[in-house]
Nucleic acid binder design. Structure first.
Lengths: 199, 199
DNA sequence: AAGACTAGTAATCGACTGATAACATGTCAA
DNA sequence: TTGACATGTTATCAGTCGATTACTAGTCTT
């Protein structure tokens, strides 16, 4: 039959990007175990078996998504390392790194995927991957800025707090609780307003 | 038929404690979505329907486990607040709080359950509970110590880092990675050795 | 000892999961 | 245009999930 709509097929790599983006959203929302391959498929507009076959398995799909998230997160920090390296034990040069995080907040799926990967350490496959990336992140911070272990630790700790607050959906609900509001303002600073009013 | 073994039945509250303990271990390991009620039942040595009926639903079971974990965690901090309150903006009085965390590391299931609760914010039921407890925790720290929001934020951020590293099973694998080892030593201090060699 | 209550289990259900196999359709080179 | 290959889908499966029902056995009161 003659189809009225000319439906051009996508290249596999294009479709792959679509699926990865959909998977990123889905995994960010509900974590590894809480996300079905069918949910990813529906969000990407393809069939469920296609998703599975495209990545081999659900865990390898998550690994791909997690990998991309970590790569992009570390790339975001990259431009700021040199400034910090000038005086790594002072507070001031670290502040622009907060701006880097603000940039990441706009696509918070990245941070949520990272967090869900980190908290899936009991899964042998994902756990090993997560530890490897954490190691790379810490090493990168230390070697590029020349800072002390304690400085790097503090930076990562602040990041983990932001991730946790994001996963708890604190920005979305801060208005209902003065204490959470105060904590959120303190943690996110002025970037909260812009990011929190998205939804 | 005459059963040779005299099997005494347990009181419901005793059995409830057993199931809650088993659920705490299971949820700590694999999170909310990654844990089946059957897994909890097997770990507790009872049947799966019994677990479900005892708590009404899986989510209410998790809520119970999470509640208990948060209560015990906050109770652990309790004795240290007064000392911090003497000079809340100095570093020294906060150090014994690290000892409190070391105490919690011995039963790390508490911290892992907390973490899994926090990262289940997308679940309406659990999310609301998690935000409520985070609010209480922050409020407790602020009011009991009289510290600044920034001080409380730092304290919680350090806690989130420890939780994350625990969830990633970094203590168990630190020996395989010098960078992770350095980060772990920096984050956990000397308490790592005792806690890490458990398994 | 008889009844009422409590502490459990076995059997089963419909829904969902990740994965596989078989099949269909679009695209491009020769 | 035809065949090879890339891009998908439909149908299906065995296993698992949380939950419900119906049943069994221990315990306590009178």
């Amino acid at each position: 039959m003659a189809s009225p709509v000319k439906q051009t097929r996508m290249s596999a790599t294009e479709r792959r990007e679509l699926v990865l983006a959909a998977a990123s959203r889905a995994f960010a929302r509900d974590g590894y175990h809480g996300t079905s391959t069918d949910a990813v498929a529906r969000e990407a507009g393809v069939s469920q078996p296609y998703v599975v076959r495209m990545f081999g398995s659900k865990s390898r799909l998550f690994a791909d998504v997690f990998d991309r998230a970590m790569r992009r997160i570390m790339d975001t920090f990259e431009p700021y390392f040199d400034d910090v390296a000038a005086a790594p034990e002072n507070d001031e040069p670290w502040l622009p790194m907060g701006i880097a995080y603000a940039e990441l907040l706009e696509d918070r799926d990245l941070l949520l995927v990272m967090m869900h990967g980190f908290t899936s350490g009991a899964n042998p496959e994902i756990g090993a991957l997560a530890r490897d990336w954490m190691s790379r992140l810490y090493t990168q911070i230390r070697t590029r800025t020349g800072c002390s272990p304690e400085r790097a630790r503090i930076f990562i700790a602040n990041g983990m707090l932001l991730n946790t607050l994001l996963a708890m959906q604190v920005p979305e609900h801060a208005g209902q609780d003065p204490a959470l509001e105060e904590l959120a303002v303190c943690a996110f600073g002025s970037t909260l307003d812009a990011a929190g009013s998205e939804n």
